[in-house]
């Protein structure tokens, strides 16, 4: 089976040092130029198989959204390649990218910010169809939009209403409809349920899973709700400070987490009717992606840290179970 999307050794850094004058700094009587770089994504290698749901979990600020946006071509990676069904797409200009835009779509987190408040639902949904299929007639476009609206559970009667007239869950349905309306194969969903109510989350998740079944979609699913991730994913990648520390099938990861960070993360999930206090306590603070540790990104908080972890960045190690872990401790058999 060949991957639908291959991400190879991708780095994404943001230069936040501002204009030239802001970068100049006076130190020890000398003026030097200093740059501040946020290393949001570092050396990420991933492949996404057709029809699967690959989830990315990790703490806030670990680079999940940045990775998804880089995959979608919203950011250009600083290093590495991204290929869609074998074709490199990371360096394409916006015109060459167009054919891939109908194949890859994205659903965003904030249902309030992701719909243009000045456009009504019909305009929002018709725009992508018309843009990618200029020769469709009005009625064909309309039919296509109505069909997708029905599929996501928004009555086409509401097409002339504006986003602010809908609830958060309905807006998220419209967002999903906008992604589906160009008939994509791959959807990156960046925390699509994080802003929704508990009783609505299940509706949206069901909608996403139904759409996957009907259209054979592949998902890159980002969430920090681990129980949701466990339920809907085929495979899960755990990110920490821009690096992938563990990648395994959902079953394997949740039943047998290898990486110390994964273990800490899983132990912290609140369990219905459980008792608090059993979680792995991490010492230290989350470092910022501006000053990355020189060795393993997790070395500052890891309970199993040794000298080597502080010096050397761990390589991705493929285990027998098929999962991939980046940890010196596991490589050396210490953990």
């Amino acid at each position: 089976m060949s991957a639908i999307l291959e991400i190879h050794d991708v780095d994404k850094h943001f230069d936040i040092s501002g204009s030239f004058l802001d970068q100049l700094q006076l130190s020890k009587g000398k003026i030097t130029r200093k740059r501040t770089v946020v290393k949001a994504v570092n050396n990420v290698t991933l492949d996404i198989q057709p029809g699967e749901t690959l989830s990315i979990v990790g703490e806030s600020g670990c680079g999940k959204s940045t990775l998804a946006r880089t995959v979608m071509g919203l950011y250009k990676p600083n290093k590495g390649t991204i290929s869609y069904r074998g074709d490199r797409i990371d360096h394409l200009n916006s015109v060459k990218m167009l054919p891939y835009r109908t194949k890859m779509q994205m659903v965003f987190q904030d249902p309030y910010a992701s719909l243009n408040p000045r456009m009504n639902v019909r305009q929002i949904l018709e725009e992508p169809v018309r843009f990618h299929n200029p020769d469709l007639s009005r009625s064909e476009i309309k039919a296509r939009v109505s069909e997708v609206m029905l599929q996501v559970g928004v009555d086409p009667v509401w097409a002339s209403n504006y986003p602010h007239e809908f609830s958060g869950g309905q807006r998220q349905r419209i967002s999903i409809a906008r992604a589906l309306v160009v008939d994509p194969e791959f959807i990156a969903a960046d925390e699509p349920i994080a802003a929704l109510d508990v009783s609505i989350q299940a509706q949206i998740l069901n909608l996403l899973m139904d759409a996957q079944e009907q259209r054979g979609l592949t998902y890159l699913f980002i969430s920090h709700d681990l129980s949701v991730v466990e339920h809907i994913s085929t495979r899960v990648a755990v990110m920490y400070l821009g690096c992938i520390c563990e990648l395994a099938t959902a079953k394997e990861l949740f039943s047998n987490p290898k990486h110390p960070y994964t273990q800490a993360l899983l132990s912290a999930i609140p369990r219905l009717g459980g008792k608090i206090g059993g979680h792995v306590r991490l010492s230290g603070d989350v470092p910022t992606p501006i000053n990355l540790p020189s060795g393993c990104a997790f070395s500052g908080r890891c309970p199993h840290v040794n000298e080597r972890c502080m010096q050397e960045i761990p390589a991705q190690l493929k285990l027998e179970s098929g999962s991939v872990v980046a940890c010196h401790g596991i490589e050396e058999g210490r953990i």
């Binding site: 979608m72 835009r101 890859m104 965003f108 910010a113 243009n116 725009e127 906008r178």
Partner: peptide
């Protein structure tokens, strides 16, 4: 910075 602009870029609309 709002997500609807990013959504428009994902659709492929020109600047």
């Amino acid at each position: 910075k709002k997500e609807y602009v990013e959504a428009a870029r994902v659709i492929g609309l020109s600047r």
